[in-house]
Design a protein around this nucleic acid. Structure first.
Length: 430
RNA sequence: GUGAUUGUAGCUCAGUUGGUUAGAGCGCCAGGUUGUGGCCCUGGAGGUCGGGGGUUCGAGUCCCCUCAUUCACCCCA
């Protein structure tokens, strides 16, 4: 064993587990196409100010969870991205994407970094699957984003999900409510915990979703956010909910749902899974019309998006037995070399088969024939082709079906044809 | 950042009140079968007992420190 270990909060994904990741990712790519979202990749780091401006400097993410560094003597601070939305919006604005087409539908599967204490379902490096719909934030646009996300869960077979949704109202609605909330909380100030006291000034709405029972008790009597919504926000929210109901999507309105990022307004939502532990949020998102302005855009860019935690998704699926068997696909054929003196000719034959488009394995460690066969079985090769002195001189090769344990001796062309048949019938199976 | 938890072979774990060369199952390798995998049998390799210090004639076992893990708080995906 090496002295070196993975960095705290990071982890390796080995080939067996990659099979399961690929399965999940395939569904995402496929449904993205169905919903008309195009894939985007942005750099893992951005200038630090981008996140401070977008996520909000009072949030926990910016306050204590970012990996920030100075790459050279320039003094320009850089941060490993703790979320995707800011980077995607930055990229879209920089390229002026909306000028070429007024609505952009983008999605990604990317790695993020947050300096937290790791626990079940929480890592320092993690991945999110997410989508950002830029240029529209109508009720239908918001509903489409939610439908896309829920469709992925549905397609993957997940159960035990709860979609919670709320409207934070317009910027003005929020400002009015913030004052009403402060007025309510002020007499209780000495009962607030430290975190809530800090939020009292900067962002009192965040006190609403505190999990501290004492805070919840105080909050229970607070004025309700939805009572402060303007007519426009109410109408907007009702339309979003109508679309969801029409699609048969179950949701629960949660007036305390606020979410931790500053840029959300109007609809915000979150999905939790009963298959998860304490970190049970599988995904979340909302509408963020004001983000572009924060980032210096001359005009507002209506937008909505969601993000889903890949690791949590995999955990939930694992718990519910929804993951495929963790076995990488084996080759179509293993070349068995009984006598090492013929290795070079067998090796050349392997190359020939690969040129034919047949996935071919051959032992590179000079092991015994028994070991080669054992290896072929272990990696679930479909066939074994014996290549020794007799075969090379006669041009007739024993080809063994490793599942059926059936063997026939064929000229090379015949063996190739048989292997092709075999891989076709295999693919036809579910 | 706070609080607990657990560190013995690649994996899952045993290891008596401190007592010789630290074990098992699985996995891996080889042989049984001199050109045929899986099952079976036999054998083998593989361990700084997380690390450092201390107590003791003697420490995997006791004490201290440290590192790492896991879970929870906080917060979020």
């Amino acid at each position: 064993m090496s002295h070196y270990q993975v960095v705290k909060g990071a982890r390796d994904i080995f080939p067996d587990e990659m099979v399961q990741w690929k399965h999940v990712e395939d569904v995402m790519h496929w449904l993205a196409r169905i919903y008309g979202f195009s894939e985007i990749r942005t750099p893992v780091f951005e200038y630090t100010e981008l996140f401070q401006r977008s996520i909000g400097s009072a949030t926990d993410i910016v306050g204590k969870e970012m990996f920030t560094f100075f790459p050279d003597g320039s003094g320009r601070s850089i941060t490993l991205r703790p979320e995707m939305t800011a980077g995607v919006m930055r990229a879209a604005l920089q390229k002026n994407l909306l000028a070429s087409a007024p609505v952009q539908k983008l999605y990604y599967i990317s790695e993020l970094f947050r300096k937290e204490r790791p626990q079940a379902g929480r890592q320092r490096q993690f991945s999110q699957f997410g989508a950002e719909l830029l240029g529209a934030s109508s009720p239908a646009a918001v509903a489409e984003v939610i439908m896309f996300m829920m469709h992925v869960f549905d397609e993957l077979g997940l159960s035990g999900l709860r979609l919670r949704i709320n409207s934070l109202g317009s910027i003005d609605d929020r400002r009015r409510y913030r004052e009403a909330l402060r007025a309510y909380l002020a007499p209780h100030y000495d009962r607030l915990d430290d975190a809530s006291r800090e939020r009292f000034e900067k962002n009192p709405l965040r006190i609403l979703d505190s999990k501290n029972p004492d805070m919840q008790e105080i909050v229970a009597g607070a004025p309700r956010l939805h009572e402060h919504l303007g007519d426009e926000a109410r109408r907007d929210f009702d339309l979003v909910l109508g679309y969801l109901s029409g699609r048969g999507i179950d949701y629960r309105i949660d007036h305390l749902l606020v979410r931790g990022l500053d840029y959300y307004s109007y609809t915000a939502f979150e999905v939790t899974s009963t298959a998860l532990g304490a970190q049970d949020a599988l995904g979340g998102g909302g509408r963020y019309d004001s983000l572009a302005l924060e980032l210096g855009s001359p005009k507002e860019v209506p937008a909505a998006g969601f993000a889903v935690g890949m690791e949590r998704l995999l955990i939930a699926m694992q718990k519910q037995g929804l993951l495929p068997e963790a076995v990488p696909a084996g080759p179509e054929v293993c070349i068995i070399v009984p006598q090492q003196e013929f290795f070079d000719q067998a090796f050349a034959l392997a190359a020939r088969l690969r040129d034919e488009g047949i996935s071919t394995a051959i032992d590179l460690a000079g092991r015994s024939m028994k070991a080669q066969l054992r290896e072929a079985g272990r990696m679930r090769a479909a066939s074994a082709l014996f290549v020794g002195g007799d075969e090379l001189s006669s041009g007739m090769f024993p080809l063994k079906d490793l599942d059926a344990s059936f063997q026939e001796t064929l000229p090379l062309e015949g063996a190739i044809a048989r292997m092709r048949e075999r891989s076709i019938t295999k693919q036809d199976q579910p």
